[in-house]
């Protein structure tokens, strides 16, 4: 093979390999980073309640949804499906969870809020999604959620839907499970 050709081929082959490696090593972390920068993954951590005036003039519907990730065998549902609240007013609702298996399991709820424009104006003061949820086989629990809707919620938003997906994290949370026992 001629020298110039060999150089071209080596350079091209190396670029192909680098692109392949970049798919695993650069793309997923970059994607996560972008999601965080743009606030796409922001579903809210704990909110320090401050004194805000309740806007009694305005009513906002808040709906609650529960879904299971594919293989999650628990029973999981909101005990209240819908509430009407004033912005600024603290509200507490409960979800119900029951471990239908006969072995101890740990679950994690992951929240999602629609519409996207409401994400920054829905504050969770206390939420079961901040913690792991360990339950013995057959045990059930009521999971509390305290939230407040911000007064600056954009005017066009009249309904906010809060969805929780329940994931089985028993494998990942083995140490926590040992404490439970």
């Amino acid at each position: 093979m001629e020298k110039g050709t060999r150089k071209t081929v080596l350079r091209l082959a190396l670029s192909a390999v680098l692109m392949f490696v970049a798919v695993f090593t650069i793309m997923p972390p970059l994607y996560t980073l972008l999601c965080e920068v743009t606030g796409l993954r922001k579903v809210g951590g704990a909110y320090e309640a401050e004194e805000i005036k309740v806007d009694a003039e305005r009513w906002v519907n808040v709906q609650f949804v529960a879904t299971h990730n594919d293989a999650m065998p628990w029973e999981f549902r909101p005990m209240t499906y819908k509430v009407k609240v004033n912005p600024g007013q603290k509200t507490v609702i409960k979800y119900f969870a029951k471990n239908n298996t006969d072995r101890p399991m740990v679950a994690q709820a992951v929240p999602s809020i629609t519409p996207f424009s409401a994400v920054n104006y829905f504050h969770k003061i206390e939420c079961f999604c901040f913690n792991h949820q360990p339950l013995e086989g057959g045990e059930s629990a009521e999971l509390g959620l305290e939230f407040v809707v911000d007064q600056d919620l954009p005017k066009q938003v009249t309904t906010i839907t809060l969805s929780y997906t329940l994931f089985d994290i028993t494998e990942q949370a083995k140490p926590g499970l040992a404490q439970l026992n």
Partner: peptide, 14 residues
């Protein structure tokens, strides 16, 4: 092709 076929290969490998 050299820029993106490795990306396809990466996607199916993942």
């Amino acid at each position: 092709l050299i820029a993106v076929m490795p990306v396809l290969a990466g996607a199916v490998t993942m």
